[in-house]
Computed example of a mutant assay.
Amino acid sequence: MNLENYFISQFKSANIGDDGAFIDGMVYSKDAFFENIHFKTSWMSHYQIGYKSIMVNISDAVAMNATPKYALLSVAMPKDITKSQMRDLAKGFQDACAKYGVDIIGGDTISNIKLDITVTIVSKSNKPLMRKGLKRGDLIAYSGTLGKSAKELKKLMNLGKIHKNSKFVNIFLRDKFIYNNRRFLRVGMDISDGIFSDLQKLSLASGVGFRFYKKIQKRVGCSGEEYEMLFGFDRRFKKTLLRRAKLTKTPINIIAECVRKAYTNRCKSHHFNKN
């Protein structure tokens, strides 16, 4: 068990284990976006930082088939941040929230040695999409393409530059696909820690393993912060989902089927990396 899973295991609640907690028709989710962990200010403008910090949190709502309604922001800012940077940061928050009709209702601001952001999203769902529920024979798929986020991060770490529309900076969510096809999906989650690590979460939740149809390279399987959708469904809906995915221009990649066997994650933990 890695350190993240060990820490989470200390809390005993039936509401822990998904992208958010579903309680009385509402989904509550929260993620951190910290300088020198998730980004560097030399990589992204303050507007881009604010925008992405909201989008990665809305991603959790989308992944659970929930409509985001409200946001609470906690922002720790360095003392040398300028008023112009503050305005850009706030504009990033506001534009991302406006895109999904989210109302910023409060939060907290404190002084810090660097820029650290924590966002809570409150969403509504009549039929949430959970991680538990896979059955043997179900198919596993993901949307879009994987591997670009890690490739672009490596470029930034080597002092290179990436395009302003790079997936690392400007993520694209699959909300229309999820909202339109929830009734055909058994389980789902967003790919934030790499597909190999996130498959482990589905495996543990449902007690199944996977038989892969083709090999996925480790550099692709361990690429985090992709924010594509990982989902499972009854194989009877394969043709239906492939056909309906075209309506929202969502590329679908069917990679495995669920079987009775152990699953081994080939990636190191992103959250407790010793490097």
Rank of each mutant, 00 (worst) to 15 (best):
M1T: 12
L3A: 14
Y6P: 02
I8Y: 07
K12N: 10
S13T: 05
N15C: 06
D19M: 12
D19V: 03
G25K: 07
G25F: 03
M26R: 13
Y28R: 00
D31G: 02
E35W: 01
W43C: 00
Y47V: 09
K52W: 05
S53G: 03
M55P: 02
I58V: 15
D60Q: 15
A63Y: 05
L72M: 15
K79F: 00
D80A: 11
D95I: 00
K99N: 04
G101E: 04
V102L: 09
G107N: 04
D108F: 14
I110G: 08
V122H: 07
N126V: 07
K127H: 15
L129Q: 08
R131T: 14
R136K: 15
G137V: 10
D138F: 12
T145Y: 12
T145R: 10
A150F: 11
L153I: 09
K154V: 10
L156E: 01
M157A: 12
K161M: 09
K161E: 09
N170W: 07
N170I: 04
K176N: 14
F177L: 10
I178C: 13
Y179R: 07
D190G: 03
D193K: 07
G194Q: 00
Q200T: 00
S206K: 01
S206C: 04
G207S: 03
V208P: 00
F210R: 02
K214L: 01
K215M: 06
I216T: 06
R219H: 11
V220M: 05
G221V: 00
C222T: 07
E225D: 13
E225H: 12
E228G: 14
G232F: 05
K238R: 14
K239Y: 03
T240A: 12
K249P: 01
I254M: 02
C258W: 06
C258T: 15
V259K: 13
V259M: 08
R260N: 15
R260C: 04
A262W: 05
K268P: 01
K268Q: 09
H270R: 08
N273L: 11
